[in-house]
Amino acid sequence: MAWILLVVSGLLETVWASALSASRGFSRLTPSIVFAVALLLSMTGLALALRTLPVGTAYAVWVGIGAIGTAVYGMVALGDSVSTARLLCLLAIVAGVVGLKLVS
Rank of each mutant, 00 (worst) to 15 (best):
V61A: 07
S18W: 03
V7T: 08
G79N: 02
V94S: 12
M1F: 09
A19R: 00
W3V: 09
V15A: 05
S18R: 14
V72F: 11
L46R: 01
V8I: 04
L48A: 08
M1Y: 01
I93E: 08
V98G: 15
G56D: 02
A71C: 08
A92Q: 08
G25N: 06
F26G: 05
V63P: 02
W3I: 06
L78D: 12
T52C: 05
S42A: 08
T14N: 00
G66L: 02
L6I: 01
A95F: 15
G64I: 09
V34I: 03
V72T: 05
G96E: 01
S27F: 14
A19D: 01
R86W: 00
A22F: 00
L88A: 14
R86Y: 09
L90Q: 02
L40I: 05
A2P: 11
V8P: 03
C89T: 15
L41I: 06
L11P: 07
L20D: 01
V82H: 13
L39W: 06
W3K: 02
A47T: 06
L46E: 07
G69W: 03
V76G: 00
V97E: 04
L87Y: 10
L41N: 03
V76Q: 07
V15Y: 05
K101Y: 10
W62L: 12
T52V: 12
T84E: 14
G96L: 11
T70V: 01
L40E: 07
L100V: 03
T57M: 10
V8G: 13
S18F: 12
L12S: 00
A60D: 07
Y59V: 02
V37N: 00
V7H: 11
L78G: 15
A49H: 05
L100N: 04
R24L: 13
R24Y: 13
L88V: 14
G25Q: 07
A49F: 04
F26M: 12
V55F: 15
Y73T: 11
C89Y: 13
G25I: 09
L50V: 13
A49S: 09
L50E: 06
F26H: 04
G74R: 04
L91T: 07
L91S: 14
V103K: 15
R28Q: 11
S18L: 13
S32V: 03
D80H: 05
M43A: 02
V97D: 04
F26E: 06
F26T: 06
T44L: 14
E13K: 00
V8R: 09
K101H: 14
L39P: 09
V7A: 14
M1T: 10
A49N: 04
T57L: 11
W16E: 01
L91Y: 13
V15N: 00
G66E: 01
S23M: 14
L39E: 01
G99Q: 06
A2D: 05
I65D: 08
T30R: 10
I93G: 06
V55Q: 14
A19C: 01
S23V: 05
W3S: 11
I93W: 13
A95R: 15
L11R: 07
